[in-house]
Design a protein around this nucleic acid. Sequence first.
DNA 1: CCGTATCCATTCCGATACTG
DNA 2: CAGTATCGGAATGGATACGG
Lengths: 152, 152
Amino acid sequence: MVEDVSTQSRECPVARTLEAIGDRWSLMIIRDAFDDIRRFSEFQKSLGVAKNILASRLKTLVEVGVFDIRPASDGSAYKEYVLTDKGREIFPIVISLRQWGERFLFKPEETRSVLLDNASGQPLMPLEVRSANGQKLGPLDCHRVRLVDGES
Amino acid sequence: MVEDVSTQSRECPVARTLEAIGDRWSLMIIRDAFDDIRRFSEFQKSLGVAKNILASRLKTLVEVGVFDIRPASDGSAYKEYVLTDKGREIFPIVISLRQWGERFLFKPEETRSVLLDNASGQPLMPLEVRSANGQKLGPLDCHRVRLVDGES
DNA sequence: CCGTATCCATTCCGATACTG
DNA sequence: CAGTATCGGAATGGATACGG
């Protein structure tokens, strides 16, 4: 009874990802972490989120393994939240969200933040979905299958 | 006061994207659309979501410009929800979510759905963030700036 | 078959106050 | 500074019933 949803969640990686980090604040927190924000108050100031919410999200993100807690780099007795490897690998997700938004959700004149390559000062290349041998792929070039046991 | 949040939302493409399609169901609906699901009942069956919620999400996704409503392709007097160009460009977002989930949220033995390239039958290449001239980029290789007027 | 309307439970969020 | 505790309101979710 009503097990469809859980089945979806259990087996679909998209669903699991959304469950783990797909809420309204988590991805914003992670976005800030990519801008080297590490301290509670910095997140709080940047996001304007209530402190209890922020505390709750940081806690679950630590549990999920996206952040590590470390003692502060300066003398202060407090903590820093730094991305783990797992957390850093969220980079393409944030970039894909950013690029879609830049392209479809802003008028040209509107003020916005953009991400530039340090080396060249240029905007990034649009993300592209590619096959194992490098061909560019669209939605119609793929199909979904159920992989039952982790066999190749 | 408390204008920080809205400022964020107004100027950050990531925030705007999450506001538009970043809720729990929208991205799942879009994921299904990439599997050629078009009809209300098909979405409903696939997702196990309540009908009122589905109706609400579809409506806003149409308003946002991600879906178009078309008369059904068969004779039936009903509608189909098909992705617009804007909607199809969400593909990299869904793929990035999927790949992160596959990599970090499943144990090797767990049953899961995977996406294969039609031509080769192989899994896709992991998405990579690249600079304008093709260099692979990590989070530390970029910086965010405020672009005030759409210049350049 | 495709939704809309209603109702209720749960969750989420923000503001405030409080602790070490 | 870095949280925790609490509270009320808003949004979200599910179940069901109903109409085109």
